[in-house]
Design a binder for these strands. Sequence first.
RNA 1: GCGGAAGUGGCUCAGUUGGCAGAGCAUCUGAUUGUGGCUCAGAGGGCCGAGAGUUCAAAUCUCUCCUUUCGCCCCA
Length: 429
Amino acid sequence: MFLCPAQGTEKSPNSMSIKRINGFADLFETDSLLFDFMETTCRKIFSDYGFREIRVPIMEYTQLFARSIGTETDVVQKEMYTFPDSHGTNQSLRPEATAGIMRAYISASLHAKESVSKLFTYGPMFRCERPQKGRMRQFHQIDCELLGSNAPTADAEIISLLMHYVDALGLTDLTLRMNNLGCPECRPKYRAALVEYLSRHEADLCDDCKRRLHTNPLRVLDCKKDHDLAFMKEVPVFLDYVCPECARHYETVTGLLQENNISYIQDHCLVRGLDYYCRTTFELQSSAIGAQTAVAGGGRYDGLIQNLGGPNVPGIGFACGMERLALLLKERQPRRKDFYMVCLDESCLHTAFRLTRELRLAGLSGEMGYAVAGIKSSMRQAGKSGARYTLLLGSDEAARQVVAVKDMDQGTQTDVAQSMLVGTLSGKD
RNA sequence: GCGGAAGUGGCUCAGUUGGCAGAGCAUCUGAUUGUGGCUCAGAGGGCCGAGAGUUCAAAUCUCUCCUUUCGCCCCA
């Protein structure tokens, strides 16, 4: 201790508390229960549809994301957490899950083992954006991918699953928006026509859209500022450029949705931020969660696996933002504990510990006070724990240890032999 | 990366023209009640985000920085 300098009133730097990283959240019980609910419901429903869980690493080589998401996207350009490994090769925390799943699919040659692969995962993703409501730097997504089928029924099944899932969570007031993005045959023609039209009105576009016109012209379509401009009413629509195959595919998908009472809004302005999407595109929106309206989004990505060096296998999938779902979910109550063990006498502490352990091994849930406290504060703790039964363990005049079981709902109290405790509490359920 | 707003006990926030740092809730203690929830009394707990400046005097005024938050951008 003599090495320590005299402590004055100055605060030593070591005593400063370490802060949480901006955009990274701590989830305490209330939020944690919401995530547990979302995950449990997800596992149940997704597996009912034949999807299997896959867990992929949260880091991949940066190149994987660059090639799948698109080198020009903001996500790749400036939002990824990227570090060199010991050989100097860049690796990144995943900003989304699809790329990693595609890589795993190719690595494991799943296409050779089964014609169709239905996979889902959920977990943390990382994007270094400015945090705001519904947008964290570490955020969580549920991700669902259906690989190996280009059939419209696959598209409809994926959307049906998504709608089933949010319904099971008890969410209403969500809007499904749909659009057809076409294929590498027809989309470039539309894109060219759009750029040609918008270039003629470039002077009237907002500053963001002037930039978008060159980086991602389809994005101009869903600009909030320019949407109501007069010349936007005359903007070329994709429907006039779509090839017959894409048109037929999309009509079948939307027909299936209509037949099954899955309502949606046809939104010609709906586009995706990531490069790999084609044909069927959809987004699930809510107006109740702030500026970030998208709760889930997805679509078809038929060329992606081949682009990543895999076989030419089509795919469709979606990602669902769990923080955004959580904003819409009602608070969930923790499961009620069966008992709270109060020890009234120092000589009973070991017995209290043993009885608590026996009750737990028998499948009952509960806690015990760790030390003998005053009856008042002990009862207070018992009350706060919310447990159904308070167990009072103490010694009588003959120094025998006795347990009293108090029913916290009815206020009744009965003495119970130690050997009967498990049976008594189990029987009361 | 760019804007707006806000930082005062654990939490939610008052704090007047600059003049001793406050309330409610929570926590703990005590009283009362049959051994918890109600009521009453009391206590602990603060570098007023950080640093400079103005002033006899700054939580308060000025500047800088930091953090948080809501938007823009982007995305789920």
